[in-house]
Design a protein around this nucleic acid. Structure first.
Lengths: 223, 223
DNA sequence: CGCTAGATTGAAACGAGTCAATTACGGTGG
DNA sequence: CCACCGTAATTGACTCGTTTCAATCTAGCG
């Protein structure tokens, strides 16, 4: 199903990166790789998903449904990221949705196996701690930005972040504008209007539905 | 300094609850207990705080400063909770503030010692994972509630949560109204107005600055 | 018992949401 | 390769909730 061995794939995953060859072998034996088509829901709120899922290729969107029924995009996960941890730590059910954004190869590890590795391999637990700690930090950032900054400023910060992460001023939105808007805590119309305003004054240049060229990063960081 | 032994205190802390007597002893040897007066800042954004802090008594408020300078209350920690983990996992500097809300006894563990326990004692790592996972979940909840629900609804949900957690309909705000408002992602004036509106229709009864009696929980959950 | 930070209230301005109507993109099939 | 179609994005006009600013008021500590 893949030109690389399962062992090799496992060794590339950040949370397993400190394991030795024997340990990697053992994990590889327990892992179930699968290719999921674009748009497939991996699990939804209320599901009892017993697997830790690790992304080998593709992208996964994680979102929640507010009580009043609106979708809130929480984060987008890519190669090397894992998801589903909340349902085996604490043994509850999922409270969010996970959907592939494109065809993705994902390995699943049963929670019993995972608990086993956690108790025997401190490096796995430590790597997970690192990841969760970083996620917490970035979610707290999102929270304070949504309540404390106005829409235009959030858009500007987001574009600058994309530019920084990609290392270029010609960025491509990882998700649809509607989803980016949700991630930024605003409606799609507002996001569209802010972008249009930035283009108006020559700060950015929109190309197609996903492309944005940042012409004046200085001006962006000032807004 | 305290009528209980340090060992006893350590054994009461959730993340150390699975340790055996010898391990508890060892942790106790490395721990530095201290009593902090009300209002003391334990650390601030930008500080390199090398300690994991564990609360034995009292309350600690964790908040952030948005880019535009507004304070955003993230969470309130109580007995048994820990803080400061972000600065030893990932080895960065703090990006938030921690302030005691009242006189609090807090034990500090140096990050080197903590890393040591993490690598030797899987139960400690697992307990920390549990906590971080729960915090992540609740912060995600806050996020989607702030963007998806309107102020009145957030106030109602919050009051119901306080009532549920305390097991009574006569609740006491753990922090000032200004801080609660910040936690709920609104201005103090808005919070005040929502409470006044609820009192107006006989759903709640305000008493003093911190006391709220919930007269009609049914009506609250409907708003 | 008086002072001060916290809380309340009012009026007005504004940012973002809503609803609805177009327009444009980008994947598909001819 | 191009025309077509469905989905996504844009735009406009309007509404509404929340913030803002300012003026009291009051709880609760010293």
């Amino acid at each position: 199903m893949h030109e690389h061995s399962l062992e090799h794939l496992v060794s590339l995953v950040p949370i397993f990166s400190k394991l030795d060859a024997d340990e990697v072998n053992e994990v590889a034996k327990r892992v179930r790789p699968r290719v999921h088509p674009r748009g497939e829901q991996l699990y939804g709120a209320g599901d009892d998903n017993p697997y830790l899922m690790i992304i080998h290729s593709g992208w996964v969107k994680v979102s929640r449904l507010t009580e009043s029924g609106h979708e809130q995009v929480i984060r987008v996960l890519g190669v090397g990221d894992f998801l589903g941890e909340a349902t085996f730590i604490g043994s509850g059910v999922a409270d969010h949705f996970a959907v592939t954004l494109e065809e993705s190869e994902i390995c699943s590890l049963h929670r019993d196996d995972m608990r086993d590795y956690l108790s025997r391999s401190p490096s796995v637990a430590y790597k997970m701690l690192e990841t969760l700690s970083n996620r917490l930090e970035s979610t707290e950032n999102q929270l304070s930005s949504v309540t404390g900054e106005e829409a235009g400023h959030r858009v500007a910060s987001y574009l600058l972040r994309l530019a920084r992460e990609s290392g270029t001023n010609q960025v491509t939105l990882p998700i649809s504008k509607k989803d980016v808007a949700s991630y930024l805590g605003m409606k799609a119309e507002t996001f569209s209007r802010r972008l249009a305003a930035l283009e108006e004054v020559g700060t950015v240049r929109l190309s197609g539905n996903r492309g944005i060229g940042i012409l004046d990063p200085e001006a962006l960081s000032r807004s």
